[in-house]
Design a protein around this nucleic acid. Structure first.
Lengths: 149, 149
DNA sequence: TATTGTTATACTCTATAACTATA
DNA sequence: TATAGTTATAGAGTATAACAATA
């Protein structure tokens, strides 16, 4: 039988870790503050910007336009963001955090950052740097595989 | 505004990478061989064993009992595995790969292994070791965070 | 009374395509 | 004719609880 130990198969390890880490973060923005992952990502993408077009949000969150459209509608219904017509393109919108959205984001950030720090504090500097490098190298390769079919 | 660059937020980087890697693998077992992720994991868990009880499958795949029950039902319908009553516990089953399941698994393994190698070949030893260390150190910490709420 | 595994239910996500308004 | 964004639809995955059979 070909050797295929699930525990040592890189994509499996990665999926298990990512799932566990995502859960630990979603506990904060999801359970405590009732945001979906997509809503949380949009808040984060908007937080350091005056405003962004929808297209920029799609790019900065790696979500697709349908997910962004729906998450924005929910954020707007909660009065966390506002959407205005883009003066430069009548088909598009310019999105901006409202004060309530900004306040919510400010409340959440220290909590998720603390969890991130708790995780990363178990690694030394060399390990963190290697991990960063690994992310940068692996992501384009994985996308290349998927694109080539 | 608190500093919260999504691109440098570890859980986000991890989720994006894991999603991209999973997609590149699912293209093989999913699109080419019509297996769900859970079915694929069960085949892998069974492949190097004569037989396994359901409880062992749950542990080895990090799936829950509902997912395992449903994925096994599908694998059985495809005649890839067989389920027999466990002689030692009338409530349980003993699961075994059928020859067709073994043959299918043998066909898929080299393909996903090749993709895994293509990914990992871009990393040097230090980077690979850092990834391994990250998996071992971060996973229990992430679970600890989730468990403590 | 507790445990194994199945089934039911409701909910969320995802993928795709169709659609509208504008370019 | 192409693009930005919305809406529709169907399928897949997820969480929870209820359940039957056995321990």
């Amino acid at each position: 039988m070909p050797d295929m130990e699930l525990d040592t198969f890189f994509p499996y390890q990665l999926a298990v870790l990512s799932d566990a880490v995502s859960r630990s973060m979603a506990q904060i923005y999801g359970e405590r503050f009732d945001l979906s992952r997509d809503e949380w990502r949009l808040l984060a993408a908007l937080a350091d910007q005056q405003s962004l077009r929808t297209a920029a949000l799609i790019e900065r969150t790696t979500l697709d336009k349908v997910s962004v459209s729906r998450a924005l509608a929910r954020l707007q219904a909660k009065a966390l963001v506002e959407r205005r017509n883009d003066p430069e393109d009548g088909r598009g919108y310019v999105i901006r955090l409202l004060p309530a959205g900004r306040a919510l984001f400010r409340k959440i950030v220290p909590m998720v950052k603390a969890r991130e720090q708790f995780l990363l504090s178990s690694l030394d500097d060399a390990q963190r740097q290697a991990l960063q490098a690994a992310f940068e190298l692996l992501l384009p390769r994985a996308r290349q595989l998927t694109d080539q079919g």
